[in-house]
Nucleic acid binder design. Sequence first.
DNA 1: CTTGCCTCTGACGTCGATGTGAGGTTCTAG
DNA 2: CTAGAACCTCACATCGACGTCAGAGGCAAG
Lengths: 121, 121
Amino acid sequence: MRIGDVAAQAGVSVRSLRYYEEQSLLPAQRTPSGQRRYDGSAVQRVRLIQQLYAAGLSSRVIAEVLPCFDTGTSTPELRRRLAAERDRIDRQLAELVAARGQLEAVIATAEHPPEGCTRVD
Amino acid sequence: MRIGDVAAQAGVSVRSLRYYEEQSLLPAQRTPSGQRRYDGSAVQRVRLIQQLYAAGLSSRVIAEVLPCFDTGTSTPELRRRLAAERDRIDRQLAELVAARGQLEAVIATAEHPPEGCTRVD
DNA sequence: CTTGCCTCTGACGTCGATGTGAGGTTCTAG
DNA sequence: CTAGAACCTCACATCGACGTCAGAGGCAAG
């Protein structure tokens, strides 16, 4: 596949794919003229990368853990890293839930204003 | 309280507090000489701001919804905004849970490598 | 009064993922 | 063959929440 096809199917920009290659997240074959060629797995890989970005991992960290996704091979350092990221995500989840609660409370107040509050329509 | 006290108690930098004032998130009294003075509620307010930042809201959005926290006063537009942010948080929660699942799966593989995978110790 | 710490404003630096534009090459449909 | 779409590299721009530095003023203790 060409870079534009992968971009379209994965829903990201061409620029991003080039950046992922630069960060060693997404290897690409090259035609003799220098154009990138990808196989079908690239789309899945891009989706995974996006998911990890969404989870707050940086390119650098993703580059570290991706080989583990690929080969299942792991080192103690890598396992520590994975666990650390999972724990960070757990903390982030807790924060999100708390913030969601705050918003929800304000929404409830806004919908059913008690004394001293105003609901402008 | 002086700005350094608030910063220490809320666990943020002095720079951040000045920035919050600039963004109209955290009003401050001024002494005749121009120094900022805060009352005790400032610390709570900073914690709330941090929580909303952690939830992915921008300064601009926080500035929009904070009055609602303060006075309970709401407009249709504001209620729409609040609900939109709550929904965004819900989507973000789903993404986080999914990513967590991915990581957890990889961790499981790393801890108990099946055929074809290597666990380096 | 001075020493040292805190504060002020203003402005430039940072970082990471991506946008954008220039200037040029390659591929493909007609 | 040719036009236009897609691709290439290089490199600078962006955005948001700060960090950081300079230069100057404020304030309590000795």
